[in-house]
Amino acid sequence: MKQATVTKFLWSNPHSMLLFDVKDGKGRVSHWAGEAGSPSAIRPLGWNKNSLQPGDVITVHLYPSKFESNVGRLEKVVLADGTTLKDSPRGDQGVSSRY
């Protein structure tokens, strides 16, 4: 999502969360929430507690829920200066096959 405006960034365990707003072409604002890995999972990828501040305008790439809810798992965010912050791999669920 381009021109997304950060409203809150939660550096939290076991999941970090990004809340942001997006305007459509008619100026209507939709509120979104994206999930990222834990701080220990995403810090090695360049994130820190202050990576995103309310008011920052960024581009958000995420895997949205298949339901009509504005939530999803982040893939990456691109900051105004071009810095890309990727989410952690989802190996942290481990092997979950049922056989």
Partner: peptide, 12 residues
């Protein structure tokens, strides 16, 4: 989150 669709890049 389960039930994720494809990655989404959305303009305004």
């Amino acid at each position: 989150v389960a039930s994720l669709a494809g990655v989404l890049v959305v303009s305004s």
